[in-house]
Amino acid sequence: MLEQVSARVWVTTSPTWLTTSSVVVADDGACLLVDPALTPADLVSLQGELTGRGWHVAAAFSTHPHWDHVLWSEALPDVPRWATPGAAVASTDEELAAQAARDLPGHRWDVVGGTTPLPPDTTELPWTGLRAAVVATPGHAPGHASLHLPGEGVLVAGDMLSDVEVPLLDDDDDAVDAYRRSLQRLADVVASCDVVVPGHGRVADGAEASRRIDADHRYLDDLTAGVDPLDARLGEPRVRAEHVAQAARLGAERR
């Protein structure tokens, strides 16, 4: 279930939307979970695998306030589940649960939401494991942040730098410009990374991540120009539908 991508980082990917969860493991076996997902059964299996390896969950981080990135389970322990201040207050637990029931029905969700806001201007997660720098990357969702593990050369990018999703924008009027600034910020981080983990899609090396950054810039150029992008990621019907909706929204704003 878990794939090792660096000395102390493992990932697991759900077949649904290629949703990726990351596990950062300290020397003493303490684990930081980043965006654990996707179904309750997935979370139970994840906890079982961690226990089987002699590891224990010490903390968690949610990159942004979309339901598939704020999940938890009764099978997992009661530990700090951090998010940025903007992400932690963006949606109520009831709204998140309703989104989950709509998008992936048929599951009994133990816990969804309930993240704890980090103190304002926090730059590193306050856990006892290896250094985890919080990188503000707005544009996709309120309070969206990526997690940089400089000691491992790993970037956990949240819902950015995907090979299966185009840039999906939040509803803020500044979303396109904010997304561009975030891409530039991530480009600076990627320059020192060997591994980039997107929230949806396949793990990339630094060169592939740079190609994805270029592709995301091209997509945003076409989107804002009102041109239908030539982007292979739009071949997936769900992603195409998201693109059509945001293109229509931006077109209405220009009018």
Rank of each mutant, 00 (worst) to 15 (best):
A136K: 11
A136W: 03
A136V: 05
T137W: 02
T137L: 02
P138S: 06
G139C: 02
G139W: 03
H140I: 05
A141F: 07
A141D: 11
A141P: 04
A141I: 00
P142Y: 05
G143V: 09
H144N: 14
H144E: 10
H144I: 07
H144W: 02
A145Q: 11
A145C: 14
S146G: 12
S146K: 11
S146T: 10
S146H: 10
L147M: 14
L147D: 13
P150W: 09
P150M: 04
P150N: 01
P150Q: 06
G151W: 06
G151T: 06
G151N: 07
G151P: 05
G151C: 01
E152H: 05
E152R: 04
E152K: 03
G153F: 00
G153Q: 00
V154C: 01
V154R: 03
V154Q: 04
V154T: 01
L155D: 03
L155Y: 03
L155W: 01
L155T: 04
L155V: 07
V156Y: 07
A157P: 09
A157Y: 04
G158A: 08
G158S: 08
G158W: 05
D159K: 03
D159H: 12
D159I: 06
M160E: 05
M160L: 10
L161F: 03
L161N: 07
L161Y: 06
L161E: 06
L161Q: 09
S162H: 15
S162T: 13
S162C: 15
S162W: 13
S162K: 11
D163M: 08
D163G: 13
D163R: 14
V164W: 08
V164S: 12
E165G: 07
E165P: 05
V166Q: 05
V166Y: 02
V166L: 05
L168R: 00
L169P: 00
D170E: 12
D170H: 04
D171T: 13
D172A: 15
D172I: 14
D174F: 12
D174S: 15
D174R: 15
V176C: 08
D177A: 08
Y179H: 03
R181P: 03
R181L: 04
S182H: 10
S182P: 05
S182Q: 10
L183W: 04
L183S: 04
L183G: 03
Q184H: 14
Q184C: 10
Q184L: 12
R185L: 08
L186G: 07
L186C: 07
A187E: 08
A187Y: 02
D188Y: 15
